[in-house]
């Protein structure tokens, strides 16, 4: 599929960058400078503790939103710490030092500092805690921000963006790709369709109607100027972002074993290192058993 001279080619059509946002009014309420969001892991931990609100032992507002089975924090933090989820041969490697450091850090926030409201990814996708004032900092999809601002335009002054960096910058940013199958009987027609979909005007129309970020470089300035508040952040997220590996085992990585490792560490069943190691081994066993390539 989509191979030419043994290399896999595809054209990005639909980037899905996630942005790291915070509420300026909650920062002010917690005695923090609303114009000075955290830029390092250390600052993030300190701010998350200060921003967390509790009723007894129950967290009523999360300092940092951390859905227990969502990896859109863990993967970017792992990459920021120098980790990688895939080696040069295309095999999964999410138990390296970077990932261990990231999971150790996030586990400390979740388990020891208790800065999060327990939440699943499914419920977060139905209604983000950030959207209902129950999280001060969160990774969110841009569509949520657009919806929030549509409902309450005054929120524009209350929402800010966080750009984290350790060894390097990284955020979650997937991208859907268009391929032509090598077995296609209609390669020319497929290429015509791709050309139509990727055409400048068509891409701009798609952005205007669906808010889908543009991928043509020639449109990026126009895109950034059209809505500087969010679009500049999205372009930045796309430039440093990484999504799921383009591999048959990507579903296992995103939806099963990395979330499982995260939960095992969050709930203290295993050390972060052991959780990552065990789940990588389980994932490799499943890849082998199911003959995934």
């Amino acid at each position: 599929m989509g191979r030419y001279k043994k290399k896999l080619y595809g054209l990005g059509i639909y980037p899905t960058p996630a942005v790291f946002v915070y509420r300026k009014d909650f920062f002010k309420e917690a005695g923090l400078n609303p114009e000075n969001p955290p830029t390092s892991w250390k600052e993030l931990a300190v701010d998350a503790v200060k921003l967390t609100k509790r009723d007894g032992k129950i967290v009523t507002r999360a300092g940092l939103n951390m859905p227990i089975d969502e990896i859109k924090l863990l993967q970017p933090f792992g990459i920021q710490a120098g980790g990688n989820f895939v080696d040069k041969n295309g095999n999964p490697t999410f138990d390296d030092a970077g990932y261990v450091e990231a999971l150790t850090y996030l586990t400390d926030l979740f388990k020891n500092k208790q800065v999060a409201i327990e939440q699943t990814k499914d419920r977060e996708n139905q209604q983000s805690l950030f959207a209902v004032d129950k999280a001060a900092m969160s990774i969110v999809q841009p569509t949520w921000i657009a919806q929030l601002l549509k409902n309450d335009p005054s929120l524009k002054d209350k929402i800010g963006f966080i750009n984290m960096k350790r060894k390097k910058a990284a955020v979650w940013s997937g991208c859907e790709l268009l391929f032509i199958s090598s077995e296609s009987k209609h390669k020319k027609e497929s290429w015509d369709l791709i050309q139509f979909i990727m055409a400048k005007q068509e891409m701009w129309n798609r952005y205007k109607t669906t808010k889908c970020p543009v991928v043509r470089k020639s449109l990026q300035d126009q895109y950034a100027n059209d809505d500087p508040f969010i679009n500049k952040q999205l372009l930045n997220a796309i430039s440093v972002g990484q999504g799921a590996p383009k591999s048959m085992w990507s579903q296992l990585y995103v939806y099963k074993y990395l979330p499982q490792a995260q939960q095992e560490a969050f709930y203290g069943m295993k050390t972060p290192q052991q959780a990552l190691k065990d789940n990588l081994a389980l994932m490799k066993a499943e890849i082998k058993a199911s003959n995934m390539k």
Binding site: I68, D69, T120, K121, D122, Q251, L252, Y255, K256, Q260, Q263, E264, Y267, M269, S290
Partner: peptide, 22 residues
Amino acid sequence: QGGPMNATTTIVHQIFEHAFSE
């Protein structure tokens, strides 16, 4: 969704996950 940590996963849930997620 079968969590936390598979504490509530059931046979049909596993069937669904393997068939339509994986």
